[in-house]
Design a protein around this nucleic acid. Sequence first.
DNA 1: CCTCATATCTATAGTCGCTGGAGTGTTTAG
DNA 2: CTAAACACTCCAGCGACTATAGATATGAGG
Lengths: 137, 137
Amino acid sequence: MYSIGDLSRRTGVKIPTIRYYEQMGLIEAPERSEGNQRRYEKRELERLAFIRHARDLGLSIEAIRDLLALSEHPERPCGEADRIATEHLAAVREKIARLRKLEVELERIVACHGDHTIGDCYVIRALADHSMCESEH
Amino acid sequence: MYSIGDLSRRTGVKIPTIRYYEQMGLIEAPERSEGNQRRYEKRELERLAFIRHARDLGLSIEAIRDLLALSEHPERPCGEADRIATEHLAAVREKIARLRKLEVELERIVACHGDHTIGDCYVIRALADHSMCESEH
DNA sequence: CCTCATATCTATAGTCGCTGGAGTGTTTAG
DNA sequence: CTAAACACTCCAGCGACTATAGATATGAGG
């Protein structure tokens, strides 16, 4: 039997976040002590660790809800789980690509080394004039 | 004289977003028509284009507010503008690094090709068991 | 001038994924 | 038995919008 604080320490998920996950239906409402405090079993610890891990990997609450639902039917085919993960991977790759473009633009902009005045600052001018950029974004 | 719709079309910033920027103090409250509709000058069009560009580059409203304030004092040194852009570049690089790690993990996880059942699906098992990961995240 | 479609107005609430605080009650170690 | 630590509920706030409802304004065609 774990208190919510135990669960929090063991998974690294903050207490209000655990309560939030319960509200969002990611974990079931656990049993309560006589004084109305939450008491968890090992099962819930594992479930929360799964959620934590998936969140760390950037999966949305929605996607995690689906994966958790799937994991309760071990006999079904896993195409759906694969699809969720694959889609997420694609999203991550897209984000990386976008950020790389930003990185290039920012590198160019930052080439002004702060050794003159705002009036001829490349940072300000580059932001004001999109046509100074190399790629569209 | 541009209406809010004109401004929106010319900058690609949605109408509610323009009003939001006004509320947030990024653009001044413009003159109004007799019927209380916003009427903008070219100055505001340029300012909004600046904001749009900076947002596209991922700068926060806060950072943009600072840059706009700086751009109104062309005689001052531009070290501060440079600092804002440089810090942002560092943040972008960090995000890229984090996402790359996720990419690697997700690639490993997705190696399960959906041709079996949830019970032995690598996606689900990998999420449940953090120790299967190569790097911490 | 009148009508009508389109545009705009304000105010408010919702999005996501938490996070924090206030004010109260419970558990546990000494 | 007391005090510290912990947990409870409810509600508000973050950032950067986005959406909705219901009212009013504008501009072009007849």
